[in-house]
């Protein structure tokens, strides 16, 4: 038993380590293929900015997958929260503004979007934890609800002409470091502390590993499940705010498909679909590995049709090995 556990432990370390090696290997390979141009600071900065908003989505869904859940509503919830944030940040003299003639303090769009994300999280969490709906179905439903609400709220129009203060949230920088990168670091640290240094974090792992056993050992499974979706919702709300600020707009296409990017990224980063396994480090490496593949192919001018193909294979391979690795546990 003892030895088995040690072996299992070392395997986990190795798996995360390999993800890092893969990431660094890709970086080197790309720099060789592009004769170093892809590793200039400007390029790395581009990559970090490009993946920043997805990082928030990945951290959220990463926690959910650790509890053996899934969340398909990410894309449209981020789309909705981005639209909510943007609607409170439009220039008041813009005639098609949702609240034309009104100026709101900068905190309002942020709070409104995070609250909207949080509410959706609670809704998802309630359906999964107390309604006992399979997470796949519950979040499939809420995905459509979020899309509908977004279209109703914006009347399907683009929410544009955002004020400069709001745009600066994402577009500004501290010295050479873009704000977005700072936000990602903060979010990753918060989720890290939550998962590794709070009782609730350990509960998430326990629930994902074996919900029945978790319940027997006195964990309030329903409450903790509800909370994990709530936390994820807050992260999506933040993602929506940052995305609207970065793009200077929100529309019904904003963030569409982000759920698949985020789920793929954390899976590549070693978060197991079987629940109970995963780390913030892994999630972030997963995000940036997928980002690097996207970025590298775009940099090299690879046809977008091939890009989709390569991405698809990578996801399948990652999940295949993930399933194989943990198959024996069941």
């Amino acid at each position: 038993m003892e030895i088995k556990n040690v072996l299992k432990g070392s395997k986990k370390v190795a798996s995360q380590y390999t993800t890092w090696v893969t990431f660094v290997g890709l970086l080197l390979l790309l720099s060789i293929l592009t004769k170093g141009t892809a590793l200039r600071w400007n390029s790395i900065r581009n990559l970090l900015i490009a993946e920043s908003v997805r990082s928030f989505a990945a951290l959220g869904v990463g926690m959910i997958i650790i509890t053996k859940g899934i969340d398909l509503s990410i894309g449209y919830v981020v789309c909705l929260t981005a639209s909510v944030a943007a609607s409170f940040a439009q220039n008041p003299d813009y005639s098609s503004a949702i609240y034309a003639g009104h100026t709101f303090p900068l905190i309002i769009p942020i709070l409104a979007a995070v609250a909207a994300g949080g509410l959706f999280g609670l809704f998802n969490g309630y359906l999964v934890a107390y309604g006992k709906l399979p997470p796949f179905i519950a979040t499939l439903g809420s995905m459509s609800i979020a899309k509908g609400l977004q279209l109703i709220y914006t009347k399907a129009a683009v929410v544009g002409s955002l004020n400069q203060n709001f745009k600066n949230i994402s577009q500004g920088s501290v010295g050479p470091i873009p704000n977005l990168i700072i936000y990602v670091v903060i979010a990753a640290l918060v989720v890290y502390v939550l998962l590794k240094h709070t009782r609730q974090g350990t509960h998430f792992y326990a629930i994902g590993g074996n919900a029945q056993a978790a319940r027997v050992s006195g964990i309030n499974v329903e409450r903790d499940l509800m909370m994990v979706y709530f936390y994820a919702g807050l992260l999506y709300g933040t993602a929506g705010t940052l995305l609207a600020s970065r793009l200077g707009l929100a529309n019904s296409l904003t963030a569409n498909g982000m759920e698949l990017d985020a789920i793929a990224a954390v899976t590549v980063g070693g978060v197991s679909q079987n629940g109970g396994v995963g780390s913030v480090g892994g999630m972030m490496v997963g995000v940036f590995t997928m980002g690097l593949i996207n970025y590298g192919m775009s940099f090299l001018g690879v046809d977008s049709y091939y890009q989709q193909l390569v991405k698809g294979f990578i996801i399948i391979i990652a999940v295949y090995f993930d399933m194989k690795k943990y198959a024996r546990r069941a």
């Binding site: 798996s15 390999t18 290997g25 090299l300 390569v310």
Partner: peptide, 20 residues
Amino acid sequence: MKKTVAILLVLALVCTGIFA
């Protein structure tokens, strides 16, 4: 096994180099 993943990932990118 993870090594295989790594190799495949690298192969993928090499391929993109060829496509490109």
